[in-house]
């Protein structure tokens, strides 16, 4: 009786292990198999042929160009705000931070619609711009606008954390040694927050290059003008699946590089 219960205990343990292993395996497959299926769907020759197609190349070029431009804009406008939020406790700071976080959680279609209502021909600002002959909607500029809107908050959030982690005593030391606030920021604060800032830049770039929903609403899907990689994947899906898969693989590669870089940076800062 006693030995029987021992055996059934061992068997139960083995069954639990097998069940746990199955759950883990299914979970891993669920997340990796779709990506792997893309890789298995085309041959290297097909991939190269697809990548060389003009519409594919123009989508890659436009994506890299707009995502780079958006990232530069995000860094330029986001860094002062991130520093302010990290260092100054002004009235309404929490409210401002919540507003800035909103685009991160908003559905991209809502973000796109909001930009459309603001910058459209009859929009709050767009109407005035239209009067002076400036059109934003359905231009490459609109692509950048959409990317900045959805990716900016990621950088601002990360940069704020990076600045907040820099002990203010270093800035005080720099000031007493004769450095102005601006020189202190450049020579002391930025180098000490560097790893966090670079992570923020990479995250923002990744979000910008993958942006779809807001872009298609404010910029449309015009090849060579507003058709970025995610839009081209959607556009080519029915007419040229191979090209669509090739573009997906390019985006997956960029994502992998970004994730590895962030991991390396995180390891270095730790």
């Amino acid at each position: 009786m006693k030995s029987g219960s021992i055996y059934s205990g061992i068997r139960n343990k083995q069954i639990s292990k097998i069940l746990l292993g199955l759950v883990v395996l299914i979970t891993i497959l669920f997340f990796t198999l779709p990506l792997l299926s893309l890789l298995l769907r085309i041959t290297p020759d097909e991939f190269i042929a697809a990548i060389l197609k003009p519409e594919v190349q123009s989508a890659i070029y436009l994506s890299l160009l707009t995502a780079a431009a958006s990232t530069v804009v995000i860094v330029l406008i986001g860094t002062p705000l991130a520093y302010l939020n990290a260092r100054v406790s002004y009235r309404g700071r929490d409210f401002v931070e919540t507003l800035l976080d909103l685009p991160i959680v908003l559905p991209p279609s809502v973000a796109g619609l909001a930009l459309l209502v603001l910058f459209g021909r009859r929009g709050l600002i767009g109407a005035y711009l239209n009067d002076v002959g400036i059109a934003i909607i359905f231009t490459t500029f609109a692509v950048v606008l959409a990317q900045v809107f959805v990716a900016g908050p990621l950088y601002i959030r990360q940069a704020k954390t990076a600045f907040a982690m820099v002990d203010q005593v270093y800035e005080s030391a720099s000031r007493t040694l004769g450095a102005s606030p601006l020189i202190t920021f450049v020579k002391v604060t930025i180098p000490l927050a560097w790893t966090g800032l670079v992570s923020g830049v990479i995250l923002a770039f990744a979000r910008a290059i993958g942006e779809f929903g807001a872009t298609i609403m404010v910029a449309g899907n015009l090849p060579g003008k507003t058709q970025t990689m995610p839009l081209a994947i959607y556009g080519l899906m029915q007419s040229d699946l191979t090209a669509s898969i090739a573009l997906s693989l390019v985006l997956i590669s960029i994502s992998c590089i970004i994730l590895i870089t962030i991991r390396l940076l995180a390891g270095r800062s730790a």
Partner: peptide
């Protein structure tokens, strides 16, 4: 006067040497 114009030497607690 701002700190940078006072010409005052300051040895901080824990020294605040620039770690980078």
């Amino acid at each position: 006067c701002p700190p940078e114009e006072r010409n005052i030497g300051y040895v901080f607690q824990d020294y605040a040497l620039f770690p980078h």
